[in-house]
Design a binder for these strands. Structure first.
Lengths: 148, 148
DNA sequence: GAGGAAAATCAGAATGATTCTCGATATCGT
DNA sequence: ACGATATCGAGAATCATTCTGATTTTCCTC
C-alpha cells in the first residue's frame, strides 16, 4: 500500500465527490485512508477504530455519501454489521471469502478466463429474466484458518 | 409445485428436524409449505402473510431452528429484511437475481459446465487462502423488468 | 479577505428489524 | 394418563442504523 496509491485514490475520490456535488472533507479522507490501509472490508466499528478521529454518526452518513459517489461499496455479509471497502473502480474486481465463525472477510480473484466466461453467462441469464445487470457478487463461505 | 413435492419435502424436513432433536410442528409445516409455494426467497413479512396463522415471534424462532436443521437457508440481500428459502439440499443449486430498486429476488441457474469449472477454481482459491469452503453464493444485482 | 449560503459535523434521541422473556400449552415416551 | 421437555404467543428489550437540531466549516463572490 504505497503512498502513491493513496494519492491516486484521493484524487479519484475528490473527482467523484465533486461530480456528485459533495466535498472531500478531512473526515471523508480519513475514511478512504483507513479503507485503503486495510486489505479487506471493514465493519463500522473497525473503521471507527482504524480511522483518525472518526465519529459514529458522521461516519455512517459519510459512508452513504461515499457509496453514492461510487467511492466505497457496501459488502453484504451474513452477520448484522455492515462492511465497507473501496469501490472496484478504484481498486480491482475481486470476490470474498467469508468465515462462518468469526465473520472475517478476505479477498480473492478468479482467473481472467473464467471471469470472462462467467460474465457471458450472467449477462445471458439477466437477459432471460428481464433484468438489466449492473454487477455480480461471488462469495465463498467456510471456515478460516484461525477458526478451524 | 405439485403436491407430491410437498409430501417429499415434508418427509425430508421431518427427518432433518428429528435428527436435530426438534419437532415438525404445524407452525413449521406452514413455513415449509409457504416457502415451497413461493418461487423465490421470502421476507419475514411476506412469509407471515403467505403462511397460515404464523405469529411473528414464533416464526423468527422457528426459522432459526429450521436453518439449524438444514431445512431452510437465509438469503443475504442488501436491504435490511432477512429472506429465507428452502435449503438447496431439498431443492437444487441455484443463484439469485436481486433488484436494486424493489429488492425482489428471482432464481436462475448456470450451465453445469460452467458451474463445475467455477467449483474447481473456488476450491483452489479456498485452499490458497487457508479456508475450508462449505458453499458459494453468486448473486446478480440490477434492475428488474417492472422497475425499469 | 469579509460575508453569506450551503454543506458538513457532533451528540444524542428515535427507529425498526430481530431477539429475548416468561407463563401457558402441546407433544413425546413410558 | 403422567411427567418431562419442546414449543407457543404477547409483549418487552436489544442494538445497529438513521434522524434531528444546533453549531461549525467550507466555498464562492464581491
Amino acid at each position: 500500500m504505497p503512498t502513491d496509491d493513496l494519492d491516486r485514490l484521493n484524487a479519484q475520490a475528490a473527482k467523484l465527490l465533486t461530480a456528485h456535488a459533495h466535498r472531500f472533507t478531512t473526515a471523508r479522507q480519513h475514511i478512504v485512508a483507513a479503507l485503503h490501509e486495510a486489505d479487506s472490508p471493514l465493519t463500522i466499528l473497525q473503521l471507527l477504530d482504524a480511522g483518525e478521529g472518526l465519529v459514529q454518526s458522521t461516519t455512517y452518513r459519510n459512508l452513504v455519501v461515499l457509496e453514492d459517489a461510487g467511492v466505497v461499496t457496501r459488502v453484504i455479509t451474513p452477520d448484522d454489521h455492515a462492511r465497507y471497502e473501496l469501490d472496484e473502480h478504484l481498486t480491482h474486481h475481486h470476490h470474498h471469502l467469508i468465515c462462518n465463525d468469526c465473520g472475517d472477510v478476505k479477498d480473492f480473484e478468479l482467473s481472467d478466463n473464467l471471469e470472462n466466461k462467467l460474465d457471458g453467462e450472467l449477462q445471458e441469464a439477466g437477459r432471460t429474466a428481464g433484468f438489466r445487470i449492473e454487477r455480480h457478487s461471488l462469495d465463498l463461505f467456510g471456515t478460516c484458518k484461525s477458526c478451524s
